[in-house]
């Protein structure tokens, strides 16, 4: 056991963890931040994406100890300060970009990071960027549409609801 200290959602936290503890386990089990999900064991599905120092990271691919001193943001802290949904979250609701909701936290974290580095991504760029996030429910149609809408692009020509 070793003590790990990091800032999670703006709050400094310290916990004793085993060396093999993954960041996602730290978030879910030590901090009860269960919005970050585990959908696979090969770093393929992206349900566990969080932001580490502002970058989208699969939290199953790093040990908690590797996040020592880092700023971590999870899905629980993406909404606006007044508690309203962020632009990306709101677009996902408006365009039905989620069904069962399990991949959704990872999708939102990935999309949020994408729009920070590429404010107006094309459809192809979005699809390419979502390569590491698997959704089994939506067929991606409304996820891609929601991200385009969140970036301020007109999606009225994209096939109907």
């Amino acid at each position: 056991m070793a003590k790990v200290t990091m800032t999670v959602n703006g709050k400094s936290v310290s916990r004793d963890v085993e060396g093999r503890t993954l960041l996602v386990q730290f978030l879910r089990e030590k901090l009860n931040l269960t919005g970050t999900h585990v959908g696979c064991d090969t770093s393929q599905c992206g349900a566990c994406v969080v932001h580490v120092n502002g970058e989208a990271v699969k939290s199953c691919t790093m040990f908690a100890a590797e996040a020592e001193g880092a700023e971590v943001t999870t899905i629980e802290a993406v909404e606006n300060d007044d508690g309203s949904l962020s632009v990306v979250q709101q677009a996902f609701q408006d365009h039905h970009g989620l069904q069962c909701g399990f991949c959704t936290p990872g999708m939102v974290m990935t999309a949020t990071a994408l729009l920070k580095e590429n404010p107006k991504p094309s459809e192809a760029e979005i699809r390419d960027h979502l390569e590491g996030n698997i959704c089994r429910c939506t067929g991606y149609h409304n996820i891609v549409k929601a991200i385009m809408a969140a970036s301020g692009q007109d999606v009225s020509s994209v096939a109907a609801e």
Partner: peptide, 10 residues
């Protein structure tokens, strides 16, 4: 149901 899923509260 979207609000709880989008905010990590499912």
């Amino acid at each position: 149901e979207d609000v709880r899923f989008l905010t990590g509260h499912g």
